[in-house]
Simulated assay, not measured.
Amino acid sequence: MDEKFKDCDCEGDSLSSADDLNDQKRKDTISFMTWNLFIGADLSPLFSASILEEVPRRVTEVYRQFLATNFPERVKKIAQQIELYTPDVIGLQEAACWQLRQLTVPEMPAVTFDYIKLLIKELENRGLIYEVSACNHNISAQLRSSQGNFIRLLDRDTILIRKESGLKIVKRREGNFKTNDTTKLGGLNFELLRGWSAVDISNDKHKFRVITTHLETGSPVINLVQGNELLEGPANTSLPIIMLGDLNVTRDGQSPSAAYSHFLHAGFQDVWLVAGQGQGLTCCQDYDLLNAFSTLSRRMDCILYKNGWKPLSVKTFGTELQDRTPIAQWLSDHAGVIAHMEV
């Protein structure tokens, strides 16, 4: 792992040897959740800096946005939503880790906002034990701000499993896509790295695979190529399979993306099309999360399945005014999706 992000490493592998769960009741109905937690800021000001000298000011602007979206407050309500549904398996996208290090006072500890650790801790406070089963690292950057600090950002996707679900990890894999979009940062090329996590899971009766990913949003062509990499890689299995993610299902609220269409042509089915009611819109609230009424207008997040699953129910959540934080911020710029499946 990159040394500068050692404080943002994912933790929690005990489910792979959870023999103490063997005496728990195994069930054929399993609940799955997917949620893009929102990285916390609009990163486009960084990429509009045409020369390196502009970057520190833009870094300060973006970090101030992140602080304003207040993940320590959002995570309390995010955990409340998870407690409401208590899913067995959760796929999270934009599970970021932000750090601030003071250049002028190097002995001062870093200020770290690790979405995964903060969420797991908040769930523990509610009596729910979730553990990281897989976690992939995507975009990472360390940039100087205009205020004498280093700001570090790491984007991740992760799969969490509820310890009392009785599910055990058989195998885990994480990877990055070979094809990624690029942009300019201070006039230099910058790769918008994305990836996926996959876990083979057993509940004694059955073995199945879960994948979570966040496909490219800025380029339809790269979105398609990344989808095909999944089909040729971790999604190429005869096991029952669940795909959780921000797949950018539709680009204009109506027509499906090419990658999504390829998933369906490859035999995947969309839980929402089978068991959902309404449009299932999941994106997007404003970047500051303060829009007075929900502005969800596209379906981008979904749960796909293949090889032996039967959908029982599916719904979106985090879409109601009362779901917001005490300062009237939405919990994320995306709604989440929860489904109950029978294998």
Rank of each mutant, 00 (worst) to 15 (best):
T60A: 05
L103R: 14
I116W: 06
P45Y: 05
G233D: 04
P56S: 09
I211E: 03
A235R: 03
A339L: 07
S31C: 07
R172M: 12
V199T: 05
T217W: 15
L304A: 05
D246W: 06
W272N: 03
K306L: 07
S165T: 09
L143D: 00
V249N: 00
E232A: 12
Q329R: 06
E122K: 13
S50G: 13
K315G: 06
K310V: 09
E83Y: 03
L118C: 07
S261G: 09
C10Y: 11
Q329W: 01
D157H: 10
K171A: 11
T213K: 08
T316Y: 02
Q24Y: 13
C135R: 00
I120R: 07
D114M: 09
S133L: 10
E124W: 15
F208K: 04
E229M: 01
Y63E: 06
I30R: 00
L188C: 12
M1T: 15
A258M: 10
E229D: 03
L321Y: 15
N223S: 08
D301R: 01
R209I: 03
L100M: 15
G276M: 02
P234L: 02
L119T: 01
V225Y: 09
D7P: 08
I78V: 07
L247Y: 04
R173A: 13
A275R: 01
E124Y: 15
R64L: 11
F208D: 04
E83I: 02
Q102L: 15
Q99D: 05
T69K: 04
S332K: 04
A292E: 12
D286F: 13
N36W: 05
R58S: 11
L239R: 09
V271E: 06
T295R: 12
S14A: 14
K163H: 14
K121R: 15
P240Y: 09
K207P: 05
L92P: 01
M341A: 04
V75L: 07
N36S: 02
A134V: 07
N125A: 10
D157R: 11
I82K: 00
D19P: 04
F150N: 09
L231V: 08
A275T: 09
L244K: 02
T325E: 06
E229T: 05
D270N: 04
